[in-house]
Amino acid sequence: MERAVFVLNEVFGFAHPEIARILDRSPTAVRQLATRARRHVHARRPRHRPEADLHARVTERFAAAALGGDLRTLLELLAPDVTLRTDGGGKGPAVSLHPVHGRDRVAAVFMAAARALPVVGVDLLHRRVAGDPGVLVFADGGPLAVVVVDLTSEGDRIAGVHSATNPDKLPGITRPAASRRASRPGCGP
């Protein structure tokens, strides 16, 4: 419930009373869940905040490598002890209900995801998500995922990847007409 409240409020901008109606909870309970969720998210975040442009550049390189199937670049970007957390709600293309740990395992997940995506019709939109640089991924015109990465304290590697793919949590995301097309190997014009 905390995750649902956090994503609906922080990512999609729903007010607490709206979330209360969606989740069939009281507004007071939703506010408590939101407070706890923010506390948990901030506890997992690194204390050192990297420079915004560096964070954005690493996020963009990661998205291009992950969706483009560029294993070499992906392995360069991921810290050895990286953790992937996905939220597919049993409906989205999430890997597991449990976090995936380690550079090789996380890279393998993204290589499999890149192979499963359509060759054309995948778009990326770089936007701030919950205060950090993030990537909105669209496939076949609809939202597929929201991805945010945490960087190591040095700021040069990715320590954590957070991916929301539950379609119930993505309905408010729309693709603008001029979004950036992802470059995938073998994609035609």
Rank of each mutant, 00 (worst) to 15 (best):
H162L: 10
L170C: 06
L8P: 00
E60L: 07
P17I: 06
A113R: 08
G13Q: 08
P46D: 12
L33E: 06
V135H: 01
G142S: 12
G121Y: 05
R72M: 04
S26A: 13
P17K: 04
R47K: 14
I22H: 15
T28D: 12
A66Q: 00
T59N: 11
I22N: 06
R36T: 10
R57W: 08
R85I: 07
R72T: 13
M111V: 09
P99M: 05
P185M: 11
L117P: 05
R103W: 09
P27S: 09
R85V: 13
V100D: 01
G13Y: 05
D87G: 06
V149T: 14
T165I: 02
G155L: 04
R61G: 02
D87M: 09
L125D: 08
V11S: 02
R25M: 11
R44T: 14
F62Q: 00
P167K: 07
P176W: 09
G155P: 01
S153H: 10
G172T: 11
D104N: 13
I19H: 00
G88I: 13
D150H: 07
V148W: 00
M1C: 11
V149F: 07
D132I: 01
K91M: 12
S183D: 10
V137R: 03
A116F: 14
E60I: 05
L77G: 03
V146W: 00
V100E: 03
V109A: 09
G102P: 01
D104L: 13
V5M: 07
V122S: 03
L125R: 03
R115S: 15
M1D: 08
E2G: 09
T73H: 08
G69V: 10
H101G: 03
E2S: 13
D81I: 11
L151W: 02
D168M: 12
Q32T: 15
A114H: 09
G90V: 09
F12V: 04
T152K: 10
T73P: 04
R127I: 01
L8N: 02
E76V: 06
V119H: 13
A64L: 04
A29C: 11
L75D: 07
T59K: 03
R25T: 06
A56Q: 11
